[in-house]
Amino acid sequence: MPSTDDLKLRIEAAIPGSSAAVTDLTGTGDHFRATVVAPEFAELSRIEQHRRVYAVFGADIGGPIHALSLVTKAEA
């Protein structure tokens, strides 16, 4: 079961210069919310920003991670 720290570290490792705050929405280790700040988002549409974060997890979304609610920003 993924933890909020696992998600945070995976996002921050995959997206250069990013910082992520992750919460477990249900306390069950499968529904998460992440707020991700990354400089590269300045160049991307909202859809592309979310795709970028979803891509970090690949098939884990819909697998062990049932839901990942996202807020993405270029700067904090």
């Binding site: 909202r46 859809i47 979310h50 795709r51 979803y54 979304i61 819909g62 839901a67 990942l68 609610s69 996202l70 807020v71």
Partner: peptide, 22 residues
């Protein structure tokens, strides 16, 4: 796009719940 729901307007993906809400 990996998650559900997905909203399309004029053939284009607008987004899921987070984006639609925002």
């Amino acid at each position: 796009w990996p998650t559900i729901p997905q909203l399309f307007v004029n053939g284009e993906l607008v987004g899921g719940c987070d984006i639609v809400t925002e």
